[in-house]
């Protein structure tokens, strides 16, 4: 990774900075309204390059949202797309606490929050009214596919073997996942069940506290099938102690020699995505500036390196596209959880 020279090192004292900052933001806002939004920006690098911003992470340091959020922040700082981010982890209720805080900060034009599919579900299972559709969507950044995993000695060799056995007697097959009800590893088997004609409420789902305990259960053959993102299982897949029956995305992955569900004749595409929201009540110019900055970040080589290093798939969307996607996901999760009596 290249070391970027810090152009801000020569900046004036703090008090001076504030003045400069105010001036610049006034000027830049004026420019914005004058010439509309230019997503290709220009060499100045977006309109946030002198703004101090806050990024809220809805789970613990080291978790998925944390890695995504901090990586995005780092690229934006290094590429001078934003001045500085103050990153804070607001833990609690799988993201519900952070979501509430975001909505409470209505009108704050310096706050962003990293979130994803899991937060949508958590809000419903926690019976909170801080639903994601009340916030302003900024950008969808990445996605991770879910995988269907079995221990090496499992009788299933293809996903259809598993589906046949599952349809015959859903009660007999124990499905494990690394997230609580409402999280991606729980939503995936429920939507898969629905797609293949198993009643979701019949699914024998056992919740594990993340990838580690789930791997333990799979290696010890305590459960029949595991459903989770692939990231935490690479070592076990490589040495053959776990096998991947299928992946859930639209296309195959380089990291796993397994077909997609659609290739195997199951009509389901499911990904665990992560993106960024802003609080409601901020003006359009700020929203446009955020979007422009994220679009520029997405175009950098540094971001491509981040995706590569973390094994994330690029699935970038902003504006209306992300808005529609978010609404669709929100409805879908709500339906799934309502059918299960969890929302």
């Amino acid at each position: 990774m290249s070391i970027t020279l810090n152009p801000r090192r020569t900046r004036p004292t703090r008090r001076g900075l504030r003045k400069v900052l105010v001036t610049i933001s006034v000027v830049s806002l004026a420019t914005l309204t004058a010439c509309g939004v230019t997503s290709d920006g220009g060499d100045a690098g977006g309109d946030l390059s002198d703004q101090r911003l806050r990024m809220m992470i809805p789970n613990a340091a080291g978790g998925g949202y944390d890695l995504t959020g901090r990586a995005a922040v780092k690229v934006m700082e290094d590429e001078n797309l934003a001045d500085r981010f103050e990153v804070s982890n607001v833990e609690g209720a799988s993201g519900t606490v952070a979501m509430q805080r975001l909505l409470n900060e209505e009108g704050s034009d310096d706050l962003l929050m990293t979130m994803g599919l899991g937060v949508i579900g958590a809000v419903y299972t926690n019976q909170s009214d801080a639903t994601v559709d009340k916030a302003i969507p900024i950008a969808r950044l990445i996605e991770e596919q879910e995988a269907i995993l079995v221990p090496a000695d499992s009788p299933f060799t293809t996903v259809n073997d598993f589906v046949e056995a599952w349809k015959a007697d859903p009660d007999k097959l124990i499905i494990g996942g690394g997230s609580a009800p409402g999280g991606p590893d729980h939503l995936f088997p429920m939507q898969l069940a629905d797609a293949v004609g198993v009643t979701p409420s019949d699914v024998a789902y056992v919740e594990y506290d993340g990838g580690g305990p789930l791997t333990t259960a799979l290696l010890g053959s305590k459960i029949d099938v595991g459903m989770s993102g692939l990231g935490e299982f690479a070592g076990q897949i490589e040495d053959g102690s776990l096998r991947v029956l299928a992946v859930s995305g639209a296309e195959r992955l380089d990291t796993a020699d397994a077909p997609t569900l659609t290739e195997e004749g199951i009509d389901l595409v499911f990904t665990n995505w992560r993106g960024v929201l802003a609080p409601p009540g901020i003006d359009d110019a700020t929203v446009d500036a955020y979007i422009a900055a994220f679009e520029e970040m997405h175009d950098t080589q540094a971001w491509k390196d981040v995706l590569e290093e973390n094994g994330w798939s690029d699935n970038f969307a902003t504006g209306d596209e992300f808005d529609e996607f978010l609404t669709e996901q929100n409805d879908r999760v709500r339906t799934t959880l309502t059918d299960l009596g969890l929302a």
Partner: peptide
């Protein structure tokens, strides 16, 4: 993992 090291039985 960020060093590309894959802990596991062969690690």
């Amino acid at each position: 993992e960020s060093y590309g090291l894959q802990p596991g039985p062969q690690f």
